[in-house]
């Protein structure tokens, strides 16, 4: 979970972040998507302001550009040691002086019903992308989380999802941590070029600042031939319905058991209170409880080690 030490190597790897318009959970207003913002955060830590953002969408949509600027607002707080940026001829100190760098986002123009995958694939190939970061699942539209897979399949790249952190990048491969349930992690090495889908447990994104957001460049790019998403045409989108709560159905032959099950108090043990214990007894009870609930991690690990 540390930053890559060899930053020079990391910056040679052309890093791209795919971003999408998010929806705030409570208000439904357009916002940075939570996972995409984490992907951008990861990319900025890795590549600094060399990170380029891409989105395929409809530039005519009123809130889209403003929403995408939210990601550009994250272009700040770069290391001054990265020095003079020859490409743009801007002195680092001067840039720091105006608060942050200048982000760039390419908006691939397409209609909402078009298929983004071919366009994105074409753009990524054209830009010789090596490491593509994105959120696991979009907050708008289909939100299936399928895009990284389809892109990787089309490009013939490796794809990893559920990534919590990137540990290091060299010219050949990226070493990263994949999130497992309950805060656990698994280390993977993935050959470049690859697609990395970032999990919501990745480090929180930096603040989107107004100044850099305003300065960032959004270029509308026409690329390829937008083709409608054929599969999708047959689907029906409807407002999400609340999922029914599963009832505890008791399959029992007699009415008595069914009635009892229906009328019974919920499973909650209802709070056992143990008093008048010595510290040792209390500790015993506590450990017993934790063991029963399989919560003692030390033991779990030593058991796992014993198996090997």
């Amino acid at each position: 979970m540390t930053l890559p030490e060899s930053k020079a190597d990391a910056s040679d790897v052309r890093t791209i972040a795919l971003v999408s318009a998010g929806r705030h959970v409570v208000s439904g207003r357009s916002d940075r998507a939570r996972e995409d913002a984490r992907a951008v955060e990861m990319g900025l830590k890795l590549a600094g302001d060399a990170l380029t953002l891409v989105h395929a969408g409809d530039p005519e949509e009123p809130t889209l550009v403003e929403c995408l600027r939210g990601y550009l607002g994250m272009y700040h707080g770069f290391d001054m040691a990265r020095g003079f940026d020859m490409a743009r001829g801007v002195d680092m100190v001067e840039r720091r002086g105006s608060g942050g760098g200048c982000g760039r986002l390419d908006l691939l123009s397409m209609a909402p019903s078009d298929d983004a995958v071919p366009m994105l694939a074409e753009w990524l190939e054209a830009h010789e992308a090596k490491l593509v970061l994105t959120g696991q699942r979009a907050e708008c539209g289909e939100g299936s989380g399928l895009l990284p897979y389809l892109l990787a399949e089309r490009l013939g790249w490796a794809v990893v999802t559920g990534v919590a952190a990137i540990e290091s990048v060299d010219g050949e491969a990226v070493t990263l941590l994949q999130a497992l349930p309950q805060g656990q992690r698994r280390r993977l090495t993935v050959t470049l070029p690859c697609l990395v889908a970032v999990d919501a447990v990745a480090p929180a994104p930096r603040q989107s600042a107004f100044g850099p957001a305003r300065r960032g460049r959004v270029d509308v790019v026409e690329i390829g031939q937008p083709a409608p998403d054929a599969d999708r045409a047959a689907w029906q989108f409807m407002p999400a319905r609340a999922r029914p709560k599963r009832l505890k159905v008791v399959k029992s032959a007699n009415a008595r058991d069914r009635f009892k099950a229906a009328a019974a108090k919920s499973e909650a043990s209802g709070g056992r209170v143990l008093s008048d214990l010595t510290a040792d007894q209390a500790a015993e009870k506590l450990i017993e409880y934790l063991r029963r609930e399989n919560l003692l991690r030390q033991e779990k690990i030593s058991a796992a080690e014993g198996d090997q």
Binding site: G141, S144, M238
Partner: peptide, 9 residues
Amino acid sequence: AGDRQDIQR
């Protein structure tokens, strides 16, 4: 789906 929608297909 995203954005408080369901897809029926």
